[in-house]
Design a protein around this nucleic acid. Sequence first.
DNA 1: CGCTAACCTGATCAATGATAACTTAAACGC
DNA 2: GCGTTTAAGTTATCATTGATCAGGTTAGCG
Lengths: 227, 227
Amino acid sequence: MDGHGPVAAEAAGASKPYRKRKGEGHERREEILAAARSVFVAEGYEHATIRKIAAKAGVSSTALYLYFPDKDAILLEICDKAFGKLVARFEAIRNDGGTLVERLRRLMEAYLRFGLAHPDEYRLIFMTKQAIPMPFDHRTGADMPQGTPGANGAKAFAGLRDLVSALIQDGTLKGEDPNLMAEVIWASGHGLVSLLITMPTFHWSPVDQLIPAMIDAQLNGVLRKAG
Amino acid sequence: MDGHGPVAAEAAGASKPYRKRKGEGHERREEILAAARSVFVAEGYEHATIRKIAAKAGVSSTALYLYFPDKDAILLEICDKAFGKLVARFEAIRNDGGTLVERLRRLMEAYLRFGLAHPDEYRLIFMTKQAIPMPFDHRTGADMPQGTPGANGAKAFAGLRDLVSALIQDGTLKGEDPNLMAEVIWASGHGLVSLLITMPTFHWSPVDQLIPAMIDAQLNGVLRKAG
DNA sequence: CGCTAACCTGATCAATGATAACTTAAACGC
DNA sequence: GCGTTTAAGTTATCATTGATCAGGTTAGCG
C-alpha cells in the first residue's frame, strides 16, 4: 500500500469495469482532471502530487502520463478552464451598459475579485516561474491556437487592452499606446492580488478598502479627468 | 560519488585543514552563505539544491544543517541581505534633497529597478507561497527583532509608509490612511516587477517606458495635483 | 595524558516526478 | 469461434530532492 495501484473502484459491492472501453479514454481523462481539480483546490499547488491525484481518480499514478505529458499540464489545464470564466465575465462587461469608464472600472474589480477568489489558480497562471508560453501575440493580434495552455489568460488581457484602446481613441484615457497603458493597469491590479495571496500574514488594510483605493488611484492616474 | 562527501579541499597540492578550528564555525557559516549565494544567483531558487551548495562550499550536505535549520533559511538570509541594500538606498533617498514628491518618485523607481536587478531574491522574498512571517507590525510601529528573516523587506515598506505619511500630512497626497495608500503604491510597483519577472516571454512594452508610465499613473492618481 | 564538546561525515529515509517494460481486455477481420 | 492488434493500465524501478540519525574525529583545556 504505497500509494501506487488502483483503488477499489467503488467502495463496496459489485466491481465496476476497472478499465475504460476502447475509444473512451477521454472519459478517464476527464475523471483525472476532476480528481486533480479537487486535490488542487483542497491542498494547493505544491501539495497536489501525482499520487494523490491518481488515488482520487482511482487509477495508478502512471496512468496520468497516458493522458498528460506531465504534472504541470494537468494543473495548467484546470487553471485555464477557471480563467475561461473570467474571460466570459470580461466579455459580458465589455458588452454591458454604462460608459466605457464604468466598464473599465467593473473590469478591474472583476479581475481583482476573481484572483482573490481563486488564489491557487491565479498563482499557477500568473505567479509561477514556469512562465506560461503566451504564444499569443497580443501586439499583432494574431490568435493563438485554441486549447493552448494559458490561452484564456491571454484572452483576458486582450479584453482589457481592447477596452483601453477604445478609451484612448475617444480621448478619455491618457497616453497613446493601448498596450502600454493596458500593461500598466494590469500590473497594478496584479500587484494587489498577488501580494494579498503571497503575504496573508501582512497587516493589510481591509480588502474592501484596498480594492476601491487601487482602482481609484489607477483610474485617476490614467484618465484625463477624474473618473 | 553521489554528491555527498567533501570535495578535495583545494584542487591540487597540500591539503588545507578540512575542518574549522573550535569556535570558528561562524566562518564555515559564512562560506556556506557565499556558496549558496553563488549557486542561487547562477541557477535560481529551484535549482539551488542543498547538495550543490554543499559541494561548492566543500563540505558534506549534512554540514549545512549544523548552521541552518533548513534550505529556506539559507536562501532567505541571502535575500534579506540583498534587501539590506534596498533599505539603505531608501534611507538615502528619504534624506535626499528635492521635494517630498520627488523623493517618492525616486523611491518608486529605486524599488522597481532593484526588483528587476535581483529577480531571484525578489521572487523568494515577495513571490513565494512560503509567506515570510512578517512579524513586524508596521501598524503599531513595533520593531521586530533584528536578524529576523524578512526584516529588511518590512523595513523597506516602513520607509515607504513614512514618506507617504509625511506627504499626507502636508496635504500633497490624497487619502487619510498612510498604510492604505502605501499598500496601494507598493502593490502597483510590485505588480510590474513581479509580472516582468514571471512572464518574460510576454510581449511587454520596453521596460524604460513601463517604469515611468507606472510611476506617473500612480503619482497622478494619488496626488492632489499632478506630480 | 585524557576528556569533552564542537565540528563534520556516511548511511539512510520518505516523498516526489517520471520512465520502461510488461499485462490485460476490447474490438476487428476472418 | 479465433487469432491479432492495440488502447488502457499496471508493476517495478529510477534519480533527485530535503532532511535525520548515529557515529567519528580533532581541537583545546586541565
